[in-house]
């Protein structure tokens, strides 16, 4: 997952990830992509379009 520079680490993606794979830190996002099923919910719901596969 590519996290764009303008990500604000709000965590909406983490709250909606059905597999609990996103870790929101103060100034970074960590995707545990090994369990990702490519549902792309995180990309679709980002309020500022900061995520890209």
């Amino acid at each position: 997952m590519i996290v764009k520079e303008w990500c604000m680490y709000c965590g909406e993606c983490a709250g909606l990830c059905p597999r609990n794979l996103i870790e929101v830190r103060e100034t970074s996002l960590i995707f545990h992509e090994e369990g990702c099923k490519d549902c792309r919910i995180c990309i679709q719901i980002c309020p500022v379009e900061a995520l890209e596969k």
Binding site: C10, G11, E12, C13, A14, G15, L16, C17, P18, N20, I22, E23, V24, I41, Q44, I45
Partner: peptide
């Protein structure tokens, strides 16, 4: 809203897009 702790404990705390 980004809660992971509940889910680590086996609770269904993840939200659906229609509820967020």
């Amino acid at each position: 809203p980004e809660s992971r702790v509940g889910r680590w404990a086996g609770l269904k705390t993840s939200m659906k897009p229609k509820n967020m």
